Amino acid sequence: MIYIFTVLLLLSLMFPVILSPHIVLSFSFLGVIFLLYKKGLLMLKSLFFIHLCWVVFFVLFGINYFYNSSPDFFAEFLLFVCLAASMYIGIFCGMNFRKNLLYIYVVWVYIILIQLLKNNTLNQILNERWTITTGWLYSNAVGAVLVFSIPLLMLCFYLTKTKILKIFILLGILSSVVTLFLLSSRGSLLSLVVIFTFIFFMKKKKIKNIILSIPLLLMLFTVISKVDIIWKSVELTINRVASSGLNGREILWEEGIQSIKDNPLMGIGARNGLSIDLHNPLLHIATHYGLLALVPFTLLMIAPFFYLKLIKFKNTYTIFIFATYLAIIFQSSIEAILTPLITGSIGWYFIGLTFGYLINNYPAKDWNLNKQFKV
């Protein structure tokens, strides 16, 4: 079932006209709840914490409707239903994680790369990067999705034994990295640095060997950079990273902070006066729904951190999966990632995947599901 749920989630986001994300995610959520209930796992202590946070958030969200009248309330309600459903789907997949699930992510990345080649021109890449699209993702969102996937592709590369498949996966990783430079997305590139730094400092010799092979990749990139378009992208990216500006984000943040000061507890309501995402999920939630709603939302975002001291990164899976989680947390702090429908569903899916995987590998016998949960 984890393969079906994951494929349906990704397909509904890529082809929303054919497969409505709201319908697909809602039915998938009901399926996850049913399977958890059937296995007697629905009220695990860790899952009860997630249930409680979402229930509290939606209660405060409902109260907000009566406090702040907004015509966008029900649209926002459906959005958060999808985000919650995506997290539960991710938790289910993490609790019952299988190596073959990684190959779905590999295929998914290649589909994105093909869509980029199909939907964009050379002029866009050189002069109009903000217009780059896959048909369902735009500009920085493309970079975010790719950077979230890179650690999982690295894990897949590490676990795969077949040489042809390893080459196929490695090309996907390299193509994703090159694409990040072409997009000149500072947030994605900085997240990539966070990923590599995190993996490098983990005390795993085999993982370090993978990271130490980066000089070879850099040599390959040097050859690729002789291509004029890539070299121009590198120069643009370096200039953007070196610049002190935040492309107007500081203005949005100032507006959001002022709104919180004026309406601290209940916010200004769903999209009420601010139609643009504030490029930070915590600030976005606090601005629109108040500091009260921010509490459960924050706890949901940082839930995987609660198990760090207990897990201690005992296996390779944990390191790479947690690297994806770190990339999401880091990039969402400066990009509109966790609150829009498409990137939000992807981001919450991976947060849930991390949380579910950590639950499954928790040392306590009551929480170790390896022998209990086979679907």
Rank of each mutant, 00 (worst) to 15 (best):
L170Q: 11
L170C: 07
L171A: 06
L171M: 07
L171V: 00
L171K: 05
G172W: 06
G172D: 04
I173P: 13
L174W: 01
S175C: 07
S175P: 00
S176T: 11
S176G: 12
V177R: 09
V177P: 06
V177W: 07
V177E: 09
V177S: 10
V178N: 08
V178S: 05
V178C: 08
T179C: 03
T179I: 01
L180P: 03
F181D: 02
F181M: 06
L183N: 02
L183R: 01
S184E: 06
S185G: 13
S188R: 01
S188F: 02
L189A: 01
L190T: 11
L190C: 08
S191C: 07
L192K: 10
V193W: 01
V193A: 11
V193Q: 03
V194M: 09
V194Q: 07
I195T: 08
F196T: 11
F196H: 10
T197V: 13
F198I: 10
F198G: 14
F198N: 10
F198K: 10
F198V: 12
I199L: 14
I199T: 12
I199K: 11
F200M: 15
F200V: 08
F201P: 02
F201N: 04
K203M: 06
K203T: 09
K204C: 06
K204I: 08
K204P: 00
K204S: 14
K205M: 01
I207N: 00
N209G: 09
N209P: 00
I210E: 02
I211P: 03
L212W: 07
L212I: 03
S213K: 02
P215E: 03
L216K: 06
L217M: 11
L217P: 01
M219Y: 13
M219A: 10
L220A: 13
L220S: 13
F221I: 12
T222S: 15
V223F: 14
V223T: 10
V223S: 07
I224T: 12
K226V: 11
K226P: 02
K226S: 14
V227R: 09
V227I: 15
D228I: 14
D228N: 15
D228A: 15
I229F: 08
I230M: 07
W231S: 15
W231H: 15
K232C: 08
K232V: 05
S233M: 00
S233R: 02
V234N: 06
V234H: 05
V234R: 13
E235Q: 14
E235R: 13
L236Q: 02
L236P: 00
L236M: 03
T237I: 00
N239S: 15
N239T: 15
V241D: 02
V241C: 00
A242N: 13
A242I: 09
A242R: 15
S243E: 08
S243W: 05
S243T: 14
S244E: 11
G245F: 09
G245I: 04
L246I: 03
N247F: 12
N247C: 08
N247I: 09
G248H: 12
G248A: 07
G248I: 10
G248R: 13
R249T: 13
R249M: 05
R249Q: 11
E250Y: 03
E250D: 05
I251Q: 10
